[in-house]
């Protein structure tokens, strides 16, 4: 067992537990975006930052990937953590304002506007879909391509994947676009929460293309060409 303190409360956890799990065990809320139970931790969104230590040596780490260590002093809501979190939310809002999940997270943290150039990315590269496809659907149909600015998600050569089992798992977990599958009728939605927003593949001028990787799309039955 490993003992550490979180927000001053001592806690003992098993080796291999992440800081996020330890904090959740004590009931301290930590917002997450790219973390999902059943999928391996990835540390892409940085929303789950917590502070380790105090004073000038204190540092921020992503709690979903950081394993608990003996004697750590963790703070989940210090001024620095809150500031970092708000900044991350602003950046997420700047790149993907249409996401219901990001909107909800932002409003829960009193972030109501952002000061960067507004974009409408259809992907925030959180990697949830890739992990879903590989780890739960055992398909490995989609993955990351390119790097840096040109990094994107998709099938090899952007052609219909032989591995894809058309399960819709990737769409289901995607924070940028669960509204993908609403099409124009909210009752067809996997997630009905976004009926107030326009489905990305109908409002084509704002988005590059239909964003799901299924071909043909079995969720909304739109013919793709």
């Amino acid at each position: 067992m490993i003992s550490l303190t979180i927000n001053g409360l001592p806690v003992s956890v098993e080796e291999g537990t992440t800081l996020l799990e330890a904090a959740q065990f004590l009931g301290f809320p930590i917002p997450t975006l790219c973390h999902m139970e059943g999928l391996s931790p990835y540390g892409a969104c940085r929303l789950c930052v917590v502070q380790l230590g105090d004073g000038p040596k204190a540092r921020l780490v992503s709690s979903c990937t950081y394993p608990a260590q003996e004697g750590l002093k963790v703070r989940t809501a210090s001024a620095r953590v809150v500031r970092a979190r708000k900044m991350i939310l602003e950046l997420l809002l700047a790149s993907c304002p249409q996401s219901k999940i990001i909107q909800d997270l932002a409003s829960a943290h009193q972030v109501s506007q952002q000061r960067f150039r507004q974009e409408h990315e259809d992907c925030i590269l959180c990697g949830l879909c890739v992990r879903m496809c590989e780890e739960q659907m055992m398909a490995k149909a989609i993955g990351f391509r390119n790097r840096g600015e040109r990094r994107s998600i998709g099938t090899p050569f952007d052609i219909k994947s032989e591995q894809c089992r058309l399960c819709g798992g990737c769409i289901y977990v995607c924070p940028a676009c669960q509204l993908r599958c609403t099409y124009t009728e909210p009752d067809k939605a996997i997630c009905g929460g976004c009926a107030n927003l326009s489905p990305p593949c109908v409002e084509k001028e704002q988005f590059d293309d239909m964003m799901c990787y299924m071909n043909p799309c079995v969720a909304c039955e739109i013919e793709k060409d």
């Binding site: 490995k140 149909a141 989609i142 990351f144 390119n146 090899p156």
Partner: peptide
């Protein structure tokens, strides 16, 4: 290997 991994490396 899965095609996704090979393609990922080739484009990286």
């Amino acid at each position: 290997r899965s095609p996704v991994d090979v393609y990922g490396v080739a484009t990286f």
